[in-house]
Design a protein around this nucleic acid. Sequence first.
DNA 1: GATGAATGAGATTTCATTCAT
DNA 2: GATGAATGAAATCTCATTCAT
Lengths: 214, 214, 214, 214
Amino acid sequence: MTDNNIREFDDEIPEKKLKILEAAIKVFSEKGFEGSRTSEIAKEANVAEGTIFKYFKTKKDILLSLLLPLTLKFIKPFAMKSAEKILNKGKDEPVDEVLKNLLLDILHLVKKNMPLVKTVVIESLYHEELLVPIKEKLAPQVLELLDGYVNYHKEKGDFKDYDTRFITRTIMSMLLGYVVLSSAFPEFFSLDEEEKEIENIVNVLINGIKNGGV
Amino acid sequence: MTDNNIREFDDEIPEKKLKILEAAIKVFSEKGFEGSRTSEIAKEANVAEGTIFKYFKTKKDILLSLLLPLTLKFIKPFAMKSAEKILNKGKDEPVDEVLKNLLLDILHLVKKNMPLVKTVVIESLYHEELLVPIKEKLAPQVLELLDGYVNYHKEKGDFKDYDTRFITRTIMSMLLGYVVLSSAFPEFFSLDEEEKEIENIVNVLINGIKNGGV
Amino acid sequence: MTDNNIREFDDEIPEKKLKILEAAIKVFSEKGFEGSRTSEIAKEANVAEGTIFKYFKTKKDILLSLLLPLTLKFIKPFAMKSAEKILNKGKDEPVDEVLKNLLLDILHLVKKNMPLVKTVVIESLYHEELLVPIKEKLAPQVLELLDGYVNYHKEKGDFKDYDTRFITRTIMSMLLGYVVLSSAFPEFFSLDEEEKEIENIVNVLINGIKNGGV
Amino acid sequence: MTDNNIREFDDEIPEKKLKILEAAIKVFSEKGFEGSRTSEIAKEANVAEGTIFKYFKTKKDILLSLLLPLTLKFIKPFAMKSAEKILNKGKDEPVDEVLKNLLLDILHLVKKNMPLVKTVVIESLYHEELLVPIKEKLAPQVLELLDGYVNYHKEKGDFKDYDTRFITRTIMSMLLGYVVLSSAFPEFFSLDEEEKEIENIVNVLINGIKNGGV
DNA sequence: GATGAATGAGATTTCATTCAT
DNA sequence: GATGAATGAAATCTCATTCAT
């Protein structure tokens, strides 16, 4: 499932460079950026160590290069598939169903690209060069999308009168929490019931845990 | 607020060792474990580099030593203060209030020890030696506590009929998500309204975002 | 003026090889042999890096190959032009004039081929393979020529009774000193008065700086 | 004779750093800066390779650090000994004698520090960072000294009416030429007659080679 | 105990050279 | 012949760890 393939955009990116990127994502996600050795990346990519530096000026450069695949992996499908399919098409479906599908879609995307996401998220906590473009380019796009969704339902009267941004934050928070928790303690979750788990989470998000709610 | 002091247990731990631990927490949290230099820790601790190795066999040993302060910092107050004060004392207060106080307490604890928590959480993703004791010792204690709390309210009929563990997971998830998100994107939150934010989060957790819920 | 062209002997030498040699002379003279990269030579020569190794077995081989152009550049014209034109033709002119013309000719030759000369001179200080042929082939030819010239004038009674070799050495010394100094500190000299400078140098060489001499 | 010792200024410079500098001078002078390996310098200095980088940030830093010993080696003794002893004390001796002593002194200094001088002179042709401080600090001091000497004798009527700077240049040129030539082709000179050679050179400089001069 | 100079194994990076196309 | 992607040996530099003081 975590096939980790960045190959969707083979466009003009050379085969070897792709193999190096894939290898780097694997190794980084297992050892962390600083804990990774270019020698191991090279071996993993079936490439001579020197070849890495034909495609990337420095080791750090490999890390920064992960932003492109991340963006492509998320923005494009998220904007297209999720936005169109779920938001537009589904504007008549019940809000529970729409939200569940949205979260499930995001989640599948995250899980499929877990090593990439894990690496970028964690390393952005230590490397300004990585955090800045995320804050300035990636985050705004995601926020805009979610805010739009939230606003639509708020206007329809589906949601309580919280601040839009607060709802967006809460949705992201829950998602993030679930991802981190289930990735750190997978045995804490029943692996094959993700669908059911998400369904429950969405239910909580929508109706709360308190008895006597709807 | 994040004074990061481990000194509460000065018991027999030598002053220099404490200074080294504090320095390590600071440096690790800023650079990550692998990205940190023992030289920098030494400078930060106002100690000669060699002194570090009088108290810790290896650099990794410093990391593993963080488990003790983490446990002391969390289990003790969490078990004592939270458990007693909030759970026992509050068994008559409305559930919203109790949950809010519980979360707020945990959150304050986390925020106060953010560098320590950040380091242990992240590094446990890369170091088995760190993850194992967390899974085997820390997590069970936290779970037991939360499960007890959840069960109490479930039995009182306060909560919907979800699986206990699911509720526990969801509470932790939300907490974790909030912590990670607000720590990675602090400007995304209004710094001085943490209390209000938590209150809202608890409200969502309890009543959901859907209009027409209670 | 420093056109650096080795093309005079295009005889059978392929165009690409010439371009590589020219490029090497340029790059070597700017960065030194060890400080030069074959990649830069290739770029400068508008040639693929691999092409270099079609014409030269190794990088060092390029350096050694500079001896041929150097010899051609110097021995041929020096022996022909200088020897014939200046020495033979001028045996009746006053010694000052003859010496001045000789030095000027050599100097022009050196300046015109400065990058080549600089490279060979300096690198011969580090590479036996380069020094040996110079000592065994180039130097003797130059010495023989100069010695002949000096002897001619000594016999004519033009020169004081110094050892022939000493006079030769002194002439070369002055020339070399002037070349090195004016190339390291060009702003120390007035660029456009080279002719006048040489004239003065020759005057000193012939008459000394002491007042009361001729 | 080329003892190459920089130890005169042991002042506060650590023993190991001195050994590294001495080793670097030796290796640089034999292989050139770019052709030298830090591993060889370390071995020559009887020091671990890592130790080099405790005292010098980079390999290039070692090269630049040679300016200090060079300055100390030359400016101090040159200014003190030469200036005082030769210039002041000798203002009544015949000009030949004074100039000869001056050149001999400089020459001895150069020969004694040949590896250092060779390295700095040659590498300054390739590294701006080395050339600039020489041009701006070292050269002016030397020039001022020589100019002073020349002016003194010009005013006394000892020298012909050449431009002061020209005479300075010519003296330096001859010296430099002699040093380079005798160092590149030592067998071209009779090693043990340096004193005599210099005497002759000074005679030429003063009286020229032309017969009938004084 | 505390220090910090010294170490050297190992990391990243460079670059001459090869070779399939 | 010409190319330039790929190589990998070797270079520079880093840094946890040791140890004499």
